[in-house]
Nucleic acid binder design. Structure first.
Lengths: 183, 183
DNA sequence: GCCTAAGCTGACACATCGTCAGATCTCGAG
DNA sequence: CTCGAGATCTGACGATGTGTCAGCTTAGGC
């Protein structure tokens, strides 16, 4: 229903109708509409475990590194495509201070963040470069980029920017952010 | 009201009460709640003109370039801080396919995008590097990063990531994305 | 076939929506 | 100052949605 109806207009009675039952039955399972969406969000977060795996199992050195970065971008695009309507509600709720959604969002993105932080740290240690920039912060910035571009993919196409170009451009930024190398 | 009440719970009757008038009067001015928020969003977009100015008037070469990038990040943080509650509604509405909000979002961010694209193109031309990466796409990716990190600034602090670190990390990514230089 | 517990829902009191007819106000012409 | 046209406001209302409860239905063990 979130795919076709705006969040604001999803009413308990609509959900009940769709489920072929009455509003009273809905309230037996959920205190409100948010609580029902929360369940969907939890299922989504489960599926999100595949994202950090890509980072940990991928190669990050040289050309293979750029390829891994590209795969990561593609995985984000795919994930957002699938869960777009839930993600946007989660984002709003999080921003509005809803702890329940914030927690799920954290579980989903923090894992990616941690995986990326580790990889960045490894490269910083290897190159013995002065750690002027926090790996955590860089990881956070890169994850933000991924999440936001994936979310607004369609909006960019509207401006005549191809998804493929976005992906490649983002992959380069990530490769650079992670390795510090120019390639 | 959007600062204290969730978007979903802002009712016409609340707005009317707040304004010391009746719902019927509200409907004389706006067809629905969204339309009223739209006006706030338009005012916000006006104020957004200051963002592309920073890009165009700033220096982008060398250390001054990094300073300009940092200023740009700070400006985004400040802007989002001021208009956080409107921006999150705008984002949701845009994602849900609302043309009116999409248009305002475009006006706001596209100007930044164009300014950044121009700057990137200048650097690519100067270095005669092969244009494998679309300047427009890179600009879009960077603007996304700015918008998203600014939006979730508070969420990051929750994870123990300092705003200052975010800003510096982002500034480096932008500097690199714009100039292609490592500094 | 009976009983129990789990699950469902009709009905209700209350809130909000969106509209319209008519009340009220404003302000310039006479 | 008075009047009236046009602008603005609002009470009232039917329609729709919310959240609760008591009572009904159903499944399954005995």
């Amino acid at each position: 229903m979130l795919r076709t109806t705006s969040y604001r207009d999803v009413k308990v009675i609509d959900i009940a109708r769709e489920a072929g039952t009455s509003p009273a039955t809905f309230y037996q399972y959920f205190p409100d509409v948010e609580a029902a969406i929360l369940v969907l969000a939890e299922q989504m977060a489960q599926d999100g475990h595949r994202l950090p795996v890509l980072i940990r199992e991928g190669m990050w050195r040289g050309k293979a590194g750029l390829a891994t970065a590209t795969e990561l971008c593609q995985a984000f695009f795919d994930f957002w495509e699938e869960y777009r309507s839930i993600l946007r509600v989660m984002d709003l709720a999080t921003e509005e201070g809803d702890r329940r959604f914030h927690q799920i969002r954290t579980r989903l993105l923090n894992e990616v963040n941690v995986a990326l932080t580790e990889t960045i740290s490894q490269f910083q240690d290897a190159s013995r470069s002065p750690r002027t920039i926090e790996p955590t912060a860089t990881a956070a910035v890169l994850v933000s980029m991924l999440a936001h571009v994936a979310a607004h993919q369609y909006g960019f196409e509207f401006w005549g920017i191809r998804t493929k170009d976005l992906r490649d451009s983002m992959a380069r930024q990530i490769y650079w952010g992670v390795t510090g190398q120019k390639l």
